[in-house]
Design a protein around this nucleic acid. Structure first.
Lengths: 229, 229
DNA sequence: TCCATTGCATACCGACGGTACGTCTCCGTA
DNA sequence: TACGGAGACGTACCGTCGGTATGCAATGGA
């Protein structure tokens, strides 16, 4: 029963042609999306190792032939899921950033958005929990670098620029790394808490306090210690 | 050739008896340690999924029978490795903490020790990279809670206590989580950097700056914002 | 000396990731 | 309209690996 391709069940709609390439291409893209959809669901629920390819292709009502036609293997399929989840998270954060202009409030808005994202079970499982292990830390870092981490870097740049400090690129990256890790870990604490709302409030208070420390140093005109180069 | 037990090759030393139980117990403990040793090495090098039990028992010169006699399965073996790596890291950090008394310098010493630990490839791979995925986040958190994280919590308590703030338990935990995540992420940046020494220096500068922010707020007598409870 | 227990070795099973190959359908071209 | 090729799968199969069942020999207490 699940052995027949879903495409044959979808009749052609003659009135709406050519919006996404030929019919073949549309069908192909549809099965590919179905595979990623099911994989995202199962990976989130049972983890990477706990999800068999048979279960994925069964859920998508195709066979392994289809899977290996679109992806080079299980890891590549996971990577596709990973990228989609990451991209969506990044978009959500960027959206909240555009609504603010002042660096300090922008930072707080970004923090709030990140805390929402990190409570999504899919993001937690796919990106935070399984990501480093499945992709390896190198590929994981590369992916993060141009999505969620990029957002944090933007915020940090803005905040640092608001102070009297003139930091080189690497120092900005270091600060961004630190805050990114802080927020990831804090997000985990929030997501794992019994009362997520209260936990999120505590995190916002704590990081807000740290930011206040920055502001205090900025107002006092405190310089960074000398960098041995 | 690797099928014969190593124990038979070790003759009894009659002059040194009873320091670790009977001969049987000594042999048993020896093979168990050999398994954990080899597992730690292979897990570090090839990861959890990339390491087969055959490779482990081959390296330890025993068979799967021995492995399954001592451990309930692959995951249990990993857990044994994990605990040992974590315990050693925790010990290293605690040692550096005892050498300092002032909270602020204690914090900086702890940071320095942590940055050293996190550069150990074994710790990175076993604890940070594979830990959450293999153990699941719940068990991972439980383990961290009573080892490395406990150290960070101690430091944070000391620093917070040095200020004019009176924070409840949960708020202290929140701050500790934040700093723990910050240092983990920073450690990753250090370990993955081309010039680890320079990167470590940048991290120390950055976190030192954050701590300075705390000190500034403490000197100014700034209170934490109201907590909605 | 006896024998139950411990500590392992051996043989084997099922599941899973991956591959080889066959087949059907669509689409451009003559 | 006929057709040939390529894309998009389906099917059967293989090797590996985690885990299990069972046997056996050494050990050490009685």
């Amino acid at each position: 029963m699940p052995k027949s391709s879903v495409h044959k069940l979808v009749p052609k709609v003659p009135g709406v042609p050519g919006v996404g390439g030929t019919r073949r291409q549309q069908y192909s893209a549809s099965t590919k999306r179905a595979l990623v959809d099911v994989a995202e669901e199962l990976f989130t629920e049972h983890g990477y190792a706990g999800t068999s390819l048979d279960a994925i292709v069964g859920g998508a009502e195709v066979t392994k032939g289809a899977l290996y036609h679109h992806f080079s293997g299980k890891q590549a399929l996971f990577e596709a899921v990973f990228e989609r989840v990451e991209a969506e998270a990044s978009r959500a954060i960027q959206k909240s950033l555009k609504e603010n202009r002042d660096p300090w409030t922008k930072a707080r808005a970004g923090l709030e958005a990140f805390l929402v994202v990190v409570q999504d079970p899919t993001y937690r499982r796919i990106v935070i929990q399984e990501g480093p292990s499945v992709l390896g830390y190198e590929r994981f870092r590369e992916q993060e670098e141009r999505s969620t981490f990029a957002n944090v870097l933007d915020i940090v740049r803005a905040v640092l620029h608001a102070g009297p400090w003139d930091l080189d690129e690497e120092m900005q990256q270091t600060f961004a790394r630190i805050f990114f890790g802080a927020m990831s870990s804090a997000g985990e604490a929030v997501a794992g808490s019994d009362d997520a709302i209260a936990a999120a409030a505590r995190v916002e208070t704590a990081i807000g306090f740290i930011i206040s420390g920055f502001q205090a140093l900025a107002d006092a005109g405190v310089e960074l210690p000398e960098q041995p180069s």
